[in-house]
Design a protein around this nucleic acid. Structure first.
Lengths: 321, 321
DNA sequence: ATCATTTCATAAGGTAAACTCATGATCCCG
DNA sequence: CGGGATCATGAGTTTACCTTATGAAATGAT
């Protein structure tokens, strides 16, 4: 039968101190307990490990054989405990995160920069995927966490938490007048040069659907595949981009401003997605927290109703997340 | 806090089987117990190790980190148990044995040959020492066991067990007449060429003392330091050697015979010596047994009175030897 | 030498841990 | 949709672990 950890601790400490009493002090138990532990391990092995003379303990040859092995075992156990604790304290670990292309260019850089600063020891693997691939990536378990817009939140096997949402906006060059407007209507853009995402992209489909419901139609002068392209074109004066406001990375395009569009107002949600049956690793949990922080916690708190599922179903016992 | 062995066993087995029930079967406990063990280790680490879906258990990243470490720990514990069991079964181990020169040449080779055949995996270290160094060697702890003649058995810190004893004998060439004599008297050797050990050796002192007490005196023609020298000289016809009978290794000197000397009969004991406060290792215990066997167990049983100390003083509990 | 002190051994007893049993909840498969 | 399989959980019991109290032996100081 294999010895218990406690027996090995006693063995090693008694060997080191040459004394039950001192070993007991270090183990925070009575001397009797240590005496018992040593006897247990001896009876288990059917082998004398210490020759006793009521006063001194002298390790036998067998004991000397056992000590290095016992020390390795204990070191392993301590290493395991330390590593697990490192994972909890996010001083180690790894996580994989899938982000849709838009989020990858607009939101992710800020979040990731902050996260890396806070938790430099975590290896983060980013998959920047097409919006339609986001959910499959998470459900397949290839990514622990997904960030992006998700259409149908009706799948029971994923948790979806909306972390931010923004109106479809007109993005144009700050000219002292454009950025002053608090809102613009779709109709007021009739005569502008418009830059929109190409047909078939998520954003574009959402725009087309919403406008169609009000009998309108978007007639862009330019259609692009990448958000960054649209923004770059706008910055160069090629026209006004139609994008969710949060897609504008201010740091990258300081000359641009976003103004929400109304009539109809089109809201776009950005959500965190994870499998309902997985518990997020500490590293991923912190990623979520970092993301929420950067998106101002206040707003998220107000719209708790947007959250589709984010509380543990079991409540009988404090769960380990 | 470090995990217990039982928790690690559960962790590894659940990981391997992907099932509490199967792990429980292998651990010979109920499924509930395993469920509990896993929960304990999770609460201890504050970390999810398995994502549960009432039916399946899916290891988390942290679990995958932990498994190889846990396996190493368990392998170490098993290795330790196996090694200890090997020591008990004398399939491993080592022992150091001090023998006085006479024993080393006459008795030891037979015993050692048998011992090596029975326990080939034990490393035996032999110290062939001067007779006076035998006891110090054992008391100092440099040898676990001593074999030889010991003068004063009055020291309380060593156990001395006489394993054989033989009369001082005349050793001469078999000539069809010499070896037929069942005894010879010292007086009958008056006119023979005698070969004796040099003055100052243990054997010589014992002879001189005993003869002096009967008013006799040994007058050897040759005095030598080594027993083998005496025997070789006798074999070459240089005279009759005066030695304990057991000092004649028959295999080495087939032409020689030993005839006990009487009037006075001088008895020489050969004893096993070990420290009273040490318990012999299994390897050394077997060495003692082998020695006893080869010296015919019957004789030893008859003279149990010769044994000065060979039972454990404590008897409240079955002791581990 | 003698006695106080230190140290280990051991027995008894209580508390906490571990395990089992019984049962409930959920999922998978026919 | 029901039966079987699997995990979770609560109650209850058994086990084992630890402490307390005490004894025995040896050391060391007076």
């Amino acid at each position: 039968m294999i010895p218990t950890m406690r027996q090995l601790e006693a063995l090693v400490l008694v060997y080191r101190h040459g004394s039950l009493t001192k070993a007991a002090a270090e183990m925070r138990v009575t001397q009797s307990a240590v005496s018992l532990l040593i006897r247990q391990i001896e009876e288990n092995f059917q082998l004398r490990l210490f020759d006793r003379t009521t006063r001194a303990l002298r390790p036998t040859l067998a004991c000397k054989d056992a000590i290095p092995i016992a020390e390795r075992i204990l070191a392993g156990a301590n290493g395991l405990a330390r590593h697990m604790s490192d994972l909890v304290e996010v001083k180690a670990g790894r996580t994989t995160i899938a982000v849709s292309a838009g989020v990858a260019s607009a939101l992710l850089p800020r979040v990731l920069a902050r996260y890396r600063a806070d938790y430099p020891d975590v290896r983060v693997e980013i998959f920047d995927v097409a919006p339609d691939d986001l959910l499959p990536f998470v459900t397949a378990g290839d990514a622990e966490l997904g960030i992006g817009s998700v259409e149908n939140a009706d799948t029971p096997d994923v948790k979806i938490e909306t972390i931010t949402h923004s109106s479809l906006s007109a993005i144009g060059i700050k000219d002292g007048r454009f950025e002053k407007a608090s809102r613009l209507t779709w109709d007021s853009l009739e005569k502008c040069n418009l830059i929109a995402m190409r047909r078939g992209t998520r954003i574009r489909s959402q725009i087309d659907d919403a406008l169609a419901r009000t009998g309108r139609q978007l007639k862009p002068n330019l259609e692009v595949s990448l958000i960054t392209t649209a923004l770059a074109l706008t910055a160069e004066g090629a026209g006004i981009s139609i994008l969710p406001a949060h897609m504008l990375p201010v740091a990258q395009f300081p000359t641009l401003a976003a103004v929400p569009l109304s009539r109809p107002a089109i809201i776009r949600h950005v959500s965190l997605v994870s499998r309902a049956d997985f518990v997020l690793s500490p590293a991923a949990q912190r990623f979520v927290e970092t993301t929420r922080q950067l998106l101002s916690v206040r707003r998220a708190a107000d719209r708790r109703g947007d959250v589709s599922a984010h509380s543990s179903p079991k409540k009988t016992r404090p769960r380990i997340q």
